[in-house]
Amino acid sequence: METNAITNRRRFLRSLSTAAAIALGWMQPLLALAAGWNKPAFEAGNVDGAITAAGVADALPSADIIIKAPEIAENGAQVPVEISSNIPGTDAILIFSDKNVQPYVGLFEFKNGAEPFISTRIKMGDTSTLRAVARANGRYFVNTREVKVTIGGCGT
């Protein structure tokens, strides 16, 4: 009787720890995935299609979006890009590289005190227009820069 109870308790505890491990294993990717991933926009094969699928409509040209990128990028596989927006209420920045096979590079959403600023590195397949879109109070603004690419970065 006594030994049976102990065995049962051990078995129960063991099943609990297994359940906890499974729950943890599942929780982490689900948390990160809560942001979603816009498949049609990322898989669009031209910049107009990508922009539309990303939900960007009637973007007004704006010099208040500051793009820092090299005029000539020797290595298209690692192009440093820094984008910031001085448009009040900016809560997202989207990056497009027009001539890439898939032009939509990424969406960066700022909340809870993050400045509308991102510095990163992207791949550019060819000499191309680099397009930065800012979202502010549900409206869209855009600025562009030309980047000459010496060695393309998508097949490398």
């Binding site: 590289s97 969406l107 400045e115 990163t120």
Partner: peptide, 24 residues
């Protein structure tokens, strides 16, 4: 609390680098 949420395509460079600024 999330301060930066992103969606990336395959055109982000290898070994991605990000720099951001958080107020408060």
């Amino acid at each position: 609390k999330p301060v930066l949420e992103t969606q990336w395509g395959q055109a982000m460079a290898r070994n991605p680098y990000i720099q951001l600024r958080i107020h408060g």
